[in-house]
Amino acid sequence: MGSSRQTHSQEVLVTDVRAVVATGRGRPVEVVTIDVPDPGPGEAVVRVQACGVCHTDLHYREGGISDDFPFLLGHEAAGVVEAVGEGVADVRPGDFVVLNWRAVCGVCRACKRGRPQYCFSTHNATRPMTLDGTPLSPALGIGAFAEKTLVHAGQCTKVDPSARPAVAGLLGCGVMAGIGAAVNTGGAGPGDTVAVIGCGGVGDGAIAGADLAGARRIIAVDTDAKKLDWARQFGATHVVNAAETDPVAAIRELTGGFGADLVIDAVGRPETFKQAFYARDLAGTVVLVGVPTPEMTLELPLLDVFGRGGAVKSSWYGDCLPERDFPMLVELHQQGRLPLEKFVSEEIALDEVEQAFARMERGEVLRSVVVF
């Protein structure tokens, strides 16, 4: 899987592993050999067992997040802790973990107010992984399209080791963002009506979360008939093809003319946000979990914002707390109450990531998962 060697310049033990790297804006990704150092204080090396192909990785490749190339891609991952650095007590070698990008600091103003899910100073590893001596920028501080990766120990969340890595790892990003948008941010509960606009991985996560919370009516909205079929597998009771009908009118018709109690925009565009805003009931809640691009702007009549009441929220990572939410959701999956396995469209090899990006853009898969 890799080889260890002692470097003479820094006297740090490094391991050579295969990994997927984006070397420049818009260029096809490459499978290369990178150096992963031994963990420093507070850090852990994780042997990656599976990693989902998320749209965020494609954003990195396209330069849509930053220009800090080269990027080590991959972040929806599960694996086994192989080594830990000085001062690490919460995880140890042999632990099965899901990686997260919210390793809370415990000391920022959000943490001190008892709201660690909004931590403003999350931790990442400080020792760099490198390609031919050049430091790599790990996607979301993780970089898990690699046989091994170096992370902060707080990014390792222990879960039931009997769970399949290809399934458990999906909680590391998109699926958790969706479930959390419905349950944590949106507060979906028994008897609620919930509409979800955009039925990719995040949107279907929101549908699964609403179903888990006991919503009585879950309306899935998309322009792709295949995605609407997928949405039914996660608990959608009704579907609306927005390419054929006005989604606001359709949602209102399905809710007695009132609108939904909770509408989740899992697309993140001005037009879908406006649909979500006007498709909710008076005093209902709108949650934005789809990520907009920097140039997007929104214009709404301020009187409508006031007059419709309720709440307009954005959801960061599903407002999750990994140490609380990951083990619970894995347990619910193991009990057969959360169908995480249905998110996995295909299992692929490391050198198939570029092709998986293309299938994702064409809407042919819900999630491709690299399995090592």
Rank of each mutant, 00 (worst) to 15 (best):
R232M: 09
G87S: 12
E244T: 10
A349M: 08
L282D: 11
G114A: 06
D67I: 07
H333Q: 10
T122R: 05
L288D: 12
E364I: 05
A19T: 01
P270V: 11
L366C: 09
I179C: 01
V365P: 01
K274W: 13
A210V: 00
V17E: 02
E43A: 13
V12L: 15
A243V: 10
T245K: 09
A279C: 06
E82Q: 04
R109L: 12
E352M: 04
M1C: 03
A125H: 13
A139F: 08
L13Q: 15
A195N: 05
S4A: 12
V344W: 02
G154K: 02
R337Q: 09
Q117K: 08
A208T: 00
F258M: 10
K148H: 04
V91S: 08
W101D: 10
K313P: 07
D90W: 14
G94I: 08
G141F: 06
D160I: 09
T245W: 09
R362F: 04
A19M: 03
E43S: 11
C111W: 05
R127T: 14
V267D: 12
G310F: 07
V263S: 03
G191C: 06
E331H: 12
P270Y: 10
N124G: 14
K112Y: 06
P128D: 14
V20Y: 02
R337E: 05
V84S: 10
E43I: 13
L212N: 02
G310K: 03
V365E: 00
N241L: 06
I179E: 01
A206V: 06
V267I: 15
R5Y: 15
W101F: 13
E271T: 13
